[in-house]
Design a binder for these strands. Structure first.
Length: 234
DNA sequence: AGCACA
């Protein structure tokens, strides 16, 4: 019961998920929603009697998991508030192949499994960006860090309004409209004449804004201007 | 409610 007793883990355990959502959609949506906190290595969701309504999201860093546990606690996801804890055990996708003194078949099998999971993790990433293929060829080499401040941008809680930075001079709201309107729930773009380089883009809800953020993060209107998208502050 | 790795 004391969920606070579970020690920090790179993987978060989510329950109270809407059981009507199909497994692949669930994995994809969780990937989109949580990738704002860091690099996701795997999303596991099973629909067995025992495991439906639950999922595991494995991050590359514990700090990402910690932020996710705090910020997304109770987030209404498919109409149900998510209940998030640290996972109780380490995810298989993290087991390091350092069984040096155990040269038997077990090790080989583990490595095969690891490769298999890696492949599946890549699948998740692909399907996560499949609907935003406009951004794919446009994406920077690695994930882009928003420019301003020190860098705890990741701790801004979700918002249906996105804050866009690093836009090239001459960007118009029309241009952004075209780009963002392709994502469900799009409402409007707002730009401030007095402040070039930034914009606000409003969606109907936090989930839809998250999806668009994930899809267009780092999108380059010019090669020098990868978009830095974060949630607007309330 | 339920902690896995189809």
């Amino acid at each position: 019961m004391l969920t606070a007793d579970i020690p920090p883990n790179q993987t978060i355990y989510i329950k109270n998920l809407n059981e009507k959502v199909k497994k692949e959609e669930l994995r994809r949506s969780l990937y989109c929603l949580f990738s704002q906190y860091g690099r996701i290595l795997d999303v596991v969701a099973l629909k067995t009697q025992k495991l439906r309504g639950q999922a595991w999201v494995c991050f590359s860093e514990v700090t990402a998991a910690s932020n996710a546990v705090r910020q997304m606690q109770g987030f209404p996801f498919y109409d149900k508030p998510m209940r998030i804890q640290y996972a109780k055990t380490k995810s298989d996708c993290l087991v390091e192949a350092e069984g040096v003194y155990d040269p038997n078949a077990k090790k080989k099998k583990k490595q095969e499994e690891k490769a298999e999971r890696k492949r599946r993790a890549e699948e998740v990433q692909q399907s996560a960006t499949a609907n935003g293929s406009a951004a794919d060829n446009n994406r920077g080499p690695t994930s882009f860090r928003p420019a301003s401040g020190g860098g705890d941008q990741e701790t801004i809680p979700p918002n249906n309004i996105l804050f866009i930075q690093n836009l090239p001079h001459g960007t118009t709201s029309m241009m952004l409209h075209v780009l963002f309107q392709q994502y469900p729930g799009f409402k409007e773009v707002r730009m401030v004449e007095a402040k070039p380089g930034i914009a606000f883009v409003e969606f109907e809800d936090d989930i839809q804004s998250s999806m668009a953020m994930q899809a267009l993060q780092g999108f380059k209107i010019t090669p020098q201007n990868p978009m830095a998208i974060s949630f607007a502050k309330k």
